[in-house]
């Protein structure tokens, strides 16, 4: 496979009146059939990147192609092969649930009969049939999101873009959406999503680009990114005082310490191949004269990767 659905070359966007570029010389390739995530904090440039690819943001320099079509030169053609789910609810408030789908089909050149059939089919598979004739005002946040996904894939796009798809969704709807996207992907749908939830990127994406300040800092599968930290365990210790002293002691005596980080009263230690981590940490803390208030052990996450790359937390 590995047909490239999206290619960008030196893609740059500087908004008017801004000094720093929102997206800075971005080179990116998304293959057919993968779920690709742009992960980063607010202002990292993910939404701008998605905006350029969906023809809403005009790049300052560089080029971008969707399904081989230049997004700047032929935006109308690009729109034929893109499906978009935006952050806000953009459903047509004056139409019913069914009509929202039906008119989308008409917009994309499907005949009345095909549009009707496809609308029925999608309502069925997205479990919205009984809301068919309801106003979109009647839908909950999760249902509205489902309808927006159904609408976006109505015309069988080569790539489905989702901008922060689960921001503002309740946990249950979020899980449901993840399942839905995974299912669509199994059926061959290429998906590009932006998110600032590391769990979302980790769960859903085949490959993740970690972005900050308009640059891609790292790009790989979630597993490879996590392996790149060099650690297999993340130890988080909350102390009453003297975090620095504990960090020094752990780095010296725990063994296998890849890195330590102190933020306020929390010491985070990335460890590789250490045994009996918890009791030994407690012992070392005691020896250092530091009281342990809380202690947690976890596997490295994309958050760990982000912290290693930027020195800050994703949600700061």
């Amino acid at each position: 496979m590995a047909e490239d659905v999206i290619v960008t070359e030196g893609l740059t966007k500087v908004y008017e009146g801004m000094d720093a570029p929102a997206v800075d010389h971005l080179d990116l390739t998304v293959c057919a059939g993968e779920v690709f995530g742009l992960l980063g904090p607010n202002g990292a440039g993910k939404t701008t990147t998605a905006g350029i690819l969906t023809t809403r943001v005009v790049p300052t320099a560089g080029r971008a192609f969707v399904a081989g079509i230049d997004v700047v030169r032929h935006p109308a053609l690009v729109k034929q092969v893109s499906g978009i789910v935006s952050q806000q609810n953009t459903l047509d408030r004056q139409l019913t649930v069914w009509e929202n789908l039906y008119f989308h089909g008409r917009l994309f050149g499907m005949g009345g009969r095909d549009s009707r059939a496809r609308a029925d089919e999608l309502l069925e598979s997205f479990s919205l049939t009984k809301w068919s004739r309801a106003s979109v005002y009647a839908l909950s946040g999760g249902m509205a999101q489902r309808l927006m996904v159904a609408r976006a894939i109505f015309h069988r796009p080569a790539v489905l873009f989702l901008d922060e798809p689960t921001a503002g969704l309740d946990p249950q709807s979020r899980l449901a959406l993840w399942e839905m996207l995974a299912e669509l992907n199994r059926e061959g749908q290429t998906v590009v999503l932006t998110t600032h939830y590391m769990e979302e990127a980790d769960q859903l994406c085949d490959r993740v680009a970690i972005m900050d300040h308009g640059h891609i800092l790292a790009l790989d599968t979630p597993d490879a990114l996590k392996r790149s930290t060099g650690a297999d365990t993340i130890l988080t210790v909350k102390v009453d005082r003297d975090g620095e002293r504990l960090a020094t002691a752990l780095a010296r005596d725990l063994g296998g310490v890849v890195s330590t980080r102190v933020a306020g009263d929390v010491v985070t230690v990335q460890v590789r191949g250490a045994e009996r981590l918890v009791p030994r940490t407690v012992d070392l803390a005691e020896a250092a004269g530091v009281a342990v208030l809380d202690l947690a052990v976890a596997e490295p996450s994309l958050e760990t990767v982000f912290i290693n790359l930027t020195g800050k937390e994703l949600r700061e």
């Binding site: 032929h74 034929q80 092969v81 917009l107 994309f108 050149g109 598979s125 069988r156 796009p157």
Partner: peptide, 23 residues
């Protein structure tokens, strides 16, 4: 749902635009 991805635009910009305007 069954999938048939449209990897390439199947219609010219003019044809698609006419249909979109109608829609």
């Amino acid at each position: 749902t069954t999938f048939r991805i449209e990897a390439n635009p199947t219609r010219s910009a003019a044809t698609a635009s006419r249909a979109a305007l109608g829609g």
